[in-house]
């Protein structure tokens, strides 16, 4: 990574942190649990890195093993996170008749 590249990444990281803070600050407390499980799903984005490791023949057998486990872990995050968040959010209904099925 060249110096300029690194600075670019740091800028992106800091701006994204601020963006995250301002977005999350406005999430009502009633949605904090789905927010956390949803955030879990987003952090499963490491699957992209894991796939790059597992799909690259250069990394040898150890790379394949590490990559495979990393993909399994990240996918548990992705699918588990999104699916359970959806399950929860489906239950949130507005009154007064909203509770009725």
């Amino acid at each position: 990574m060249t110096g300029m590249d690194l600075i670019g990444f740091i800028v992106v990281f800091i701006l994204a942190t601020y963006l995250g803070a301002s977005l999350i600050g406005r999430v009502p407390p009633t949605l904090h649990t789905p927010l956390m499980s949803g955030a879990n799903a987003v952090s499963g984005i490491t699957v992209v890195g894991a796939m790059a490791v597992a799909g690259h023949t250069d990394y040898g057998w150890l790379g394949s093993v590490l990559g495979f486990i990393a993909i399994v872990f990240a996918m548990m995050n992705v699918v588990g996170g999104y699916a359970v968040t959806d399950r929860m959010l489906e239950m949130f209904k507005k009154g007064p008749q909203g509770g009725a099925k």
């Binding site: 990281f13 942190t17 995250g20 803070a21 956390m36 992209v48 890195g49």
Partner: peptide
């Protein structure tokens, strides 16, 4: 995840990681 993004030079990892990072801190 964001640190891993720095390692493999992936913007999407850096941004997503940072979003989750700040969310957890705020909570």
């Amino acid at each position: 995840a964001a640190m891993t993004g720095f390692v493999i030079k992936s913007e999407v990892l850096v941004v997503s990681g940072a979003l989750v990072g700040s969310s957890g801190i705020i909570l």
